[in-house]
Design a binder for these strands. Structure first.
Lengths: 220, 220
DNA sequence: ATTGTTATTGACACATGCTCAACAACAATG
DNA sequence: CATTGTTGTTGAGCATGTGTCAATAACAAT
């Protein structure tokens, strides 16, 4: 099996962000390509296209065309459209989870949380529509993908618990998870002309601690 | 073939939460029907089917089959699949917006909010999957439907502002809107075995007021 | 040069959204 | 009762899109 040192199941090397893609990967080179390169190229193209278009509006013909290959080849790399889509979402999710490269361990909990909020806002601002399409409305109803997105959110919770220095109890986790949805919604429906960014960060920071305090009162 | 004669005694009995249609509408097959009855019947069937299945997995053939009519007739009543889908979502949304119809004017704001929370929880509990499919992940990426769902949420905000006796400012509205997302997420990911219902209602009530207070401090 | 591997493709089968022209049931008219 | 008009209803057909299969072309190793 293993021929040229490259393992097929392990192509996680691509740190493709939701907004920026390696330009080379998109070039339509009709020629023969290595399996790994082809796969990552296809995912990158899907990532790019699905940022502005819902899944059921995207024909695999288009992806194939952009890659300069036939539709059949796409099915050689991904068993179905859903699988292809799932892979795209998975990649997008990775870049979200990795996004917040935060803060000094010396900072106070409040400052750490603040940093996370700012990081998240930055991430969303980079590609509002992309985020909305891929993470928020990206499930397309597919249970497998729903599971995926759910997993991404679940992965996020401990980061915040950690930053805020909270102990992990069911109510607190529930509260944080809910608050993340709140953060998402606010970040997406936020209009900078009505509420300034600083105001927003203040609001969200206060909101966070108020929320966890409501879940596990620290004493009044 | 398989035409008119087939009886559909086995129509999913799932909760009536999201649907408020006369049960008769689903039964009668084949025969000639008044336009209004046919329309509502079709929407009811769509409502039923879409509670457990994503939009792009639902073939109009199936809807037509359940109604005992041809696919062509469906297109006579709805110009496109998207329009049909939109109508279904619209109907589901109405029953959500209408759901909480109460609140004694004499109650304290806290009690009113509590009631709203309980009402929402009831609503979601009646058909968890239906809610998730139709309101949360129901957009399917269609911008028109996204607009619709967004509108439903927008309609909801004033109700809560009103119940809590809050003045409508941009930050407060933003906060409430975000909190509604939080409520939704928590209601959907809540596990009664880990957090009791009373505990949850307490948590949410406290969370609500903490949230709006973070947006528009009342103390200082 | 031969052989084996695999990236790649064109043709085909099948499902599904959507259109068109015709048909059938029913109400209103003389 | 016959005629006419309205409208609920349908089957055949087009267009697009997913997924399959067998065959081919490029490359590596013997």
């Amino acid at each position: 099996m293993s021929s040229t040192g490259t393992d097929r199941s392990q192509q996680t090397k691509s740190g493709v962000a939701v907004s920026s893609v390696a330009p080379d990967s998109l070039k339509s080179s009709g020629g023969r390509m290595s399996a790994d390169d082809r796969r990552t190229q296809l995912v990158a193209i899907g990532l790019d296209l699905l940022k502005t278009r819902p899944i059921h509006d995207l024909a695999l013909d288009e992806v194939a065309a952009q890659a300069g290959i036939s539709r059949t080849l796409l099915f050689h790399y991904f068993p179905s459209k859903r699988e292809f889509y799932a892979e795209v979402i998975r990649t997008a999710g990775q870049s979200l989870v990795r996004a917040p490269a935060f803060a000094d361990a010396d900072d106070t909990p409040e400052r750490k949380v603040r940093r996370l909020i700012e990081g998240f806002l930055n991430f969303v601002e980079q590609s509002r529509d992309g985020y909305r399409s891929l993470i928020r409305n990206g499930s397309g109803g597919d249970p497998e993908v729903m599971e995926l997105i759910d997993g991404i959110r679940t992965q996020l919770v401990p980061r915040w618990l950690d930053a805020a220095g909270l102990t992990d109890t069911p109510p607190v986790r529930l509260a944080v998870r809910g608050w993340l949805a709140c953060l998402e919604e606010i970040a997406l429906s936020w209009d900078p002309q009505q509420v300034s960014r600083d105001e927003l960060v203040d609001l969200l920071t206060a909101s966070f601690f108020a929320q966890v305090d409501a879940a596990a009162p620290t004493g009044s």
